[in-house]
Design a protein around this nucleic acid. Structure first.
Length: 579
RNA sequence: UGUCCGAUGGUGUAACUGGCAACACAAAUGAUUCUGGAUCAUUAGAGUCUAGGUUCGACCCCUAGUCGGACAACCA
């Protein structure tokens, strides 16, 4: 019944994922009076990537589906790693993906005072104590997953002494690392996270929002659940690695005695031929393996955006991959399918020749220029039509001609005919080659004037249709062709002694110069980075792929990123022929 | 020698909660096409990690294993 109200959400009747089942059961049981409130809680210490996009779509999607709300909350409890630069980029990315937190933008740092009070409550209940051991001592006495830990000698300090010490920690009387506040739970617990976890550490570091107001900062475990509780989050959705934290999450909420949110864990997204950890992404940027966080080869949201992915395609991808608890690796081809599906419907077509060879129409008047006409998008008549100049000297793709073609080659070859898209049928009469290199420099053809596109006589069948540009009318553009960043499906799963860096694809970027039909510069088209609206404009270059205007593009110096090539069944035929 | 979690075509997600294992991507075939794209039609591919058990009936419940993942930061 919920589905009917959200026709845009699911194609047909999609079954519920396990989180939706939990939520619907909670609603049926009247938990939280049927209220649904989620949150997306990034730490502002890096740029968001496609894995975060999954979480964003999940959390905001659930909020929308169940007529609830979704907060954006920055989990900014560690000032040494965090920065406003990241806060800004995260907000931009969430908005770009199409989600709106309205007036519910929060920071864990907003709750520092409240969190401090919660800690005092625990101290008074004798559930927390100040521990003077060094980091090394704490680590040593914590034990191992298979061996219990040893209790701290400071574990049984009096409430008064703990209160005094904790307030003096806050007051800045002690240096970094000298003391921590710990929960008094069970140092022998089979769950490592319950072995008297640290609640607060001393950090004389300026925070990007609270400045020097604090010199003690709460740990993730002490901040996250309570922040959820303060915001009255009903379903706190996070990734699988926090599963073992859940008993602690529940313990804090219960011992402090506050509103009870419910933590639910799902499997994080992995995608083939890329890495997803913030640390590795940062290394790629820092070591210059990519040009920045928004390098179009990066799996970051800003990288995908610059590459030319649309928010719709990413949302649809998130919907398609689903949500479950088992580890998963999604094939990049699914992501590619999602952009193609979207761009096919929306991107205007243009003809662009990426690897040109000259074609001369011998029987075409040298000074004549005809205006050909073509639809901008065959999938959408409302996108209108455009004019394309045709003249005696044209450019076509070098790969579209073969002197000695195999059987299934449907393109141009000596004596053969092809249709030039939106223009005439031409026949190849001869070729001219360079005397030094033997490379073909000119293909001489004749055209059949009766076959002009749209004319009654024009429907003669030919095997192939080629894209082309008129040489003297064409516009030059830099094209950046991208391939997968890594040569291995799982770069982290390498041979002994190798790291993900050893599998970087040396050919992940190829820059070429292409010739594009002049419509690319027409007012109707905004393919120029100099106007803000023009950035990220997307086109399908007929028969080659989808392309997006790069942010470095100007009207004088066009730069395009290839989002993704078109599906190419000819290349498969070629491969078969070779073997 | 721990705790928690998971296991269904190549990939991912389902299976009305115990009733003929389905959908998408990828793959293949054909039709169609002024994009070797798109579209349409069709096909192939798993018998659900293993062994027992309960049941008229098990992907689903029970028992014991196997394999994989997470957990030993004053990170999140």
């Amino acid at each position: 019944m919920e589905e009917a109200k959200f026709p845009e959400e699911g194609k047909s009747v999609r079954s519920l994922n396990f989180i939706e089942e939990i939520i619907e059961e909670d609603i049926r049981n009247g938990v939280n009076e049927g209220r649904v409130h989620t949150r997306f809680p990034p730490e502002p210490n890096g740029y968001l990537h496609i894995g975060h996009a999954k979480s964003i779509c999940l959390n905001f999607g659930l909020g929308k589906k169940y007529h609830g709300k979704t907060n954006l909350r920055f989990d900014d409890t560690n000032p040494v790693k965090e920065d406003v630069e990241y806060v800004d980029s995260i907000m931009e990315d969430v908005k770009w993906l199409g989600f709106d937190w309205e007036d519910r933008l929060y920071y864990a740092s907003d709750y520092f005072e409240q969190l401090y009070d919660y800690a005092v409550i625990l101290i008074r209940k004798e559930k927390a104590y100040v521990c003077d051991m060094t980091a090394e001592e704490i680590s040593e006495t914590r034990g191992t997953p298979t061996r219990p830990g040893k209790e701290s000698i400071y574990r049984n300090r009096s409430v008064e002494e703990n209160i005094d010490l904790f307030s003096r920690m806050r007051a800045g009387e002690f240096p970094d690392g000298s003391r921590v506040l710990r929960a008094k739970i069970d140092i022998a617990s089979p769950n490592m996270h319950m072995r008297d976890p640290i609640l607060y550490r001393i950090l004389h570091t300026s925070h990007h929002r609270t400045g020097d107001q604090w010199c003690i900062y709460p740990m993730y475990d002490f901040a996250h659940g309570q922040s959820d509780s303060i915001e009255r989050i009903t379903h706190s959705i996070c990734t699988l690695e926090f599963e073992v934290h859940r008993p602690l999450y529940d313990w804090f909420i219960r011992e402090i005695g506050i509103y009870v949110p419910r933590q639910i864990e799902f499997a994080r997204l992995n995608v083939t031929y890329t890495v997803m950890s913030k640390r590795k992404l940062l290394e790629l940027v820092r070591d210059g393996n990519v040009t920045g966080w928004d390098d179009p080869r990066m799996p970051t949201i800003c990288g995908l955006r610059r590459r030319g992915f649309t928010p719709e395609s990413i949302r649809n991808f998130a919907e398609t991959i689903g949500v479950a608890k088992r580890d998963n690796v999604i094939d990049v081809s699914l992501l590619e399918f999602c952009v193609r599906e979207d761009l096919n419907k929306r991107a205007n077509r243009l003809m662009a020749v990426l690897n040109p060879v000259r074609v001369i129409i011998d029987n075409y008047p040298g000074d004549l220029v005809e205006e050909m006409e073509s639809v901008n998008n065959p999938e959408d008549e409302s996108k209108g039509r455009r004019k394309i100049p045709f003249s005696k000297t044209l450019l076509i793709e070098r790969e579209d001609f073969m002197e000695d073609p195999p059987n299934k080659f449907f393109r141009l070859a000596p004596g053969r005919e092809v249709r030039l898209k939106a223009a005439y049928i031409i026949r190849c009469e001869s070729v001219v080659k360079s005397s030094e290199t033997g490379e073909i420099t000119e293909i001489h053809c004749t055209y059949d004037p009766l076959t002009k596109s749209g004319m009654p006589e024009s429907n003669r069948k030919v095997k192939g249709t080629l894209h082309w540009v008129s040489e003297k009318h064409a516009v030059k553009a830099e094209i950046r062709l991208y391939d997968r960043l890594f040569t291995k499906e799982n770069p982290d799963d390498g041979e002994e002694g190798k790291t993900y860096k050893d599998y970087l694809n040396p050919d992940s970027l190829r820059v070429i110069t292409a010739m594009i039909e002049p419509a690319v510069l027409s007012p109707a088209s905004l393919a120029t980075g100099s106007s803000p609206e023009g950035i990220f404009d997307k086109y399908q270059f007929e028969r080659t792929g989808y392309f997006s205007v790069d942010k470095e593009s100007t009207r004088q110096n066009l730069v395009f990123n290839r989002v993704v090539p078109l599906k190419d069944s000819w290349s498969k035929v070629e491969k078969v022929n070779k073997t």
